[in-house]
Design a protein around this nucleic acid. Structure first.
Lengths: 193, 193
DNA sequence: GTTAGATTAGACAGGTTCGTCTACTATTGT
DNA sequence: ACAATAGTAGACGAACCTGTCTAATCTAAC
């Protein structure tokens, strides 16, 4: 008789990743010691190094989670009944909302590449995230991933988020969103180019 | 008979800042210990803490230098005899060139805000840099700093540089440059909006 | 010439970091 | 019943970090 799927609400590995997600994003990866993550997650060192080869492993798991999280958020705010222009605008509400709630600390992928420039696993996950985003944008507007308009929207997204991080204001995101809508509108009107 | 303006090629304070500039940008601020900067600059700890209250002070001096450096680079590549559109394109050659020489590690201001999010001095210097950049762009195209077109070009600049950092490629900068030229062209044609 | 600022050289304290290791226990699948 | 996986609890080492301090010298201005 198993004592019910053990009272543990979450396996220790998942708790570690969840805590890392919170702390790494809010306080920075390098500024957050492994000991802090372990303590706050209620796990132990043995567990940590059982599941992850080293801190880089935990960081990679954290970043993969962020990539999934972005995709979920993007599909979550989407509304396929709306026009391409409106759907792109919806995508830009993701950073806009985050800034409003004050739990915004910039793009987790940019942050990770800045904090751990030498880690190839990070570069790979960031590449995956960017591919997912390009596909998502292409879907929203009915373009091919390789179309210029997709790269343009991505540049605007990056620019809006980076500007928001630097200025601690939502204005750059609003500017970027408006520009993205213009770009998509023009692309729809002139027929793909 | 002074032994000629002392053989020292550079005062120790300047050597510290120069070394910090190289190491902080290339390897990251937090990843570079004060001892390393001191050793590589040929200065000593006493000198370091004579000129700077703490590491934050050295970081601030480094970032101020980067802000000045950007302004010099921007005016250096500019050519006032060219058209507004061409002059904006010239500005985008700054990151494009840096990426080509492989000494590119992203935007120093973004990096600093990521690595030391709590330091108010950094936020201030970044704000100065952004004001300088906005004024520069406004000058290039004959706009007011508060015109929408200026904010648009800045968003594109940020987006190009961030994308380049994430992808380790110059493509986002090229995309951003082309978009900036389009935006300025449209703004000139329709007359300020 | 005297005084103040700049500099050298390095020891030192106090803290943090990551990762290893031992020894033991609980759960789970077969 | 047994073996493999997952976990607890915490000591520990070795490296690193920032910042202080002493004590002596060198330069420059006034």
């Amino acid at each position: 008789m198993a004592t019910s799927p053990p009272a543990s609400p979450l396996k220790s590995r998942d708790r570690l990743v969840a805590t890392a997600t919170k702390l790494f994003y809010a306080n920075g990866i390098n500024a957050t010691g492994i000991d802090t993550v372990i303590a706050e997650s209620g796990a132990t060192k043995g567990s940590m190094y059982h599941h992850f080869h080293n801190k880089d492993g935990l960081v990679a798991a954290y970043l993969r989670g962020e990539a999934n999280g972005w995709h979920e958020a993007a599909t979550g705010v989407d509304d396929s009944s709306k026009s391409p222009v409106e759907r792109v605008a919806l995508m830009f509400t993701i950073p806009a909302t985050a800034i409003a709630t004050d739990s915004f600390h910039g793009c987790p992928f940019t942050n990770a590449m800045v904090e751990r420039p030498a880690d190839p696993a990070i570069a790979e996950i960031v590449g995956d995230y960017r591919r997912v985003m390009a596909e998502h944008v292409a879907d929203l507007i009915g373009a091919k991933t390789t179309d210029t308009v997709v790269a343009q929207v991505v540049v605007l997204y990056d620019g809006g988020v980076t500007g928001a991080k630097q200025t601690r204001s939502a204005a750059p995101v609003a500017t970027a969103s408006a520009m993205a809508q213009n770009v998509v509108r023009a692309w729809l009107k002139t027929g793909r180019d």
